[in-house]
């Protein structure tokens, strides 16, 4: 069960524990992500996958454990308890399980928000319409528009994001996260609610993002076909504990995982 560790480590989580009152939602989970990898985090509903995401991205402060990041070209940092916006600025961007776009803003503006932490136009710059404001604004629009092209939403750039179809909203969330120039992209159930065709396109998009943008990706997903086809490594959680990790092939044959999943698989 050794990981095919290529490149250097980007994210290193060890002993992560999260308690809500008396309930231990995550019990000492560890996870590593290496450069250029697609890693999947799977598990039955309520296993604590999204809580894990929230701990790593700063929405929750973990009760115990270490979350270290090693951004390429920068020094390593411990990010436990950092504010979410700081973590995003350091280079980890996420999407949400229940889509969280800005509904009354246009598709392009949604992506432009992602550029916020990479630009520095101040209030004074904006009021005086300074050279910096104009330049940054133009760069932001261009970069955002390119990202929209990448996810195939360029022709609806001026539409309100609430008017998009479900699948398109999911892709827009990915584009918005990518606008923050991350080195690691965290996708929380990107294929939820998508039809097979949309899932296929998403599959292709994720692989393309990895190869073109040299991003590492951590995703939570229930769609086993998607997970097995694109992941390099898989972590399995159940009841807040990590029960297995390994390549898709290893996971498929792991009796512990089959046991945990039997109920769900039988339905599917």
């Amino acid at each position: 069960m050794t990981a095919p560790s290529k490149g250097r480590k980007l994210l290193e989580v060890s002993g992560l524990t999260m308690d809500f009152g008396g309930l231990r939602a995550i019990d000492s989970v560890g996870l590593d992500i290496f450069e250029g990898e697609i890693v999947a985090l799977i598990g039955p509903n309520g296993a604590g996958k999204t809580t894990f995401f929230n701990c790593v991205t700063g929405i929750y402060e973990p009760t115990a454990g270490e979350v270290m990041i090693h951004p390429p070209g920068e020094k390593s940092r411990r990010i436990n308890g950092m504010k979410p916006n700081r973590i995003t600025t350091l280079g980890m961007a996420r999407t949400f399980q229940n889509i969280r776009l800005f509904p009354a803003m246009t598709v392009l503006e949604n992506v432009m928000i992602g550029r916020h932490c990479r630009t520095g136009t101040s209030i004074l710059d904006a009021i005086l319409n300074s050279r910096r404001a104009v330049r940054e604004e133009r760069e932001t629009v261009e970069k955002s528009y390119r990202l929209l092209k990448k996810v195939g939403l360029a022709d609806v750039a001026d539409e309100f994001s609430r008017n998009l179809s479900y699948g398109a909203q999911r892709r827009l969330e990915i584009a918005r996260a990518m606008a923050t120039d991350p080195f690691l992209l965290l996708l929380d159930e990107p294929a939820a609610g998508m039809n097979p065709q949309e899932t296929l396109e998403l599959d292709e998009l994720i692989v393309r993002i990895r190869s073109e943008d040299k991003l590492a990706i951590l995703l939570i997903e229930h769609d086993m076909k998607l997970v097995m086809s694109i992941s390099d490594r898989i972590y399995v959680m159940e009841y807040g504990k990590e029960i297995a990790q390994g390549t898709p092939r290893e996971i498929k044959e792991n009796p512990r995982v089959i046991e945990a999943y039997l109920g769900e698989e039988a339905h599917a």
Partner: peptide
């Protein structure tokens, strides 16, 4: 501007806004 968009994003969804680095 960048500032106004951040305000609007904050109005629309605070958690998403913060998670996008604002």
């Amino acid at each position: 501007s960048r500032v106004g968009r951040a305000w609007m994003a904050l109005r629309e969804d605070e958690i998403a806004c913060v998670a996008m680095g604002v």
